[in-house]
Amino acid sequence: MTITAKSLVDISSDISSLPTIFHQINQAVEDPEITFSEIARIISGDPSLSGRLLRLANSSFYGFSSRIETISHAITIIGMAQLRDLVLATTVVSQFKNVPSSIIDMESFWKHSVACGLTARIIAVYKKEFNTERYYVLGMLHDLGRLLMLLNIPDVVKDALNTCAAEKKLLFKTEMETLEFDHAEVGGELLKEWNLPSSLIEPVRYHHNPSAAPQFQMETAIVHTADLIVHALELGNSGDSFVPPLDPKAWDKIQIPSSLISNIVDQVNVQFPDVVRAFSGKY
């Protein structure tokens, strides 16, 4: 059977749906009748999730001056839609808890994802984008396709990593040469299977080829740039040993001055250890 990006998703039945709690919260947020306290009750039913959300709410990710003690307080300050995005970013990690660290170290993988998410969010804040938490989600999701590859075709990934180290090649290009698809395409297919919106699917699917994004070019360009910055800073590692090339059109799309990179990196350096701590334990 020919392996395709879609077939990798189809054979991964145990992760082809998101945890129930995400759907419960998603439904609740869409319900105009629901109150903050009812949503807080749903989230609080999962102590591990609420603990991580509260740690994040109290970290330099937000930098609030007073301490947030309860989920209801977090909802009133952060917002329901934003909290729903943070729930997605948090619960998705548990879907992949069975990926072994033998080929790519999972702690390092999630550190790369967290760093990409907060870098994307920092850029989005500079751009005055709405709901910047979705950029954090995008960072957490952008390389998920590689985890599906590690679960289903570990030997192919291992060979590709060896080829990249020997020939100093980029992993996503080697994936494409070997399989005719890359982890970004697999990630896009997975998010489709999860029924997530195109505003999340596209930036994941096209993060190495942002100019090809049909509709959400700004989101895709920001994730593309954030991924590049995080690779350059070597914060975590999701498999690639090199900084991926910058798509100049994506950079032009974001329209931020190069001089701002230094400020972005300063903020990443402050937030990164804090946010990693918020996820500490099981990530």
């Binding site: 100093k168 900084v243 230094s262």
Partner: peptide, 25 residues
């Protein structure tokens, strides 16, 4: 860092700046 950046275009202003920021960092 030059090794890490081999797949990027060193003439692009954003890459130039990022490289310098990474050295400092």
């Amino acid at each position: 860092l030059i090794e890490n950046f081999i797949h990027t275009d060193p003439r692009h202003p954003a890459i130039k700046e990022l490289f310098q920021v990474c050295v400092k960092n």
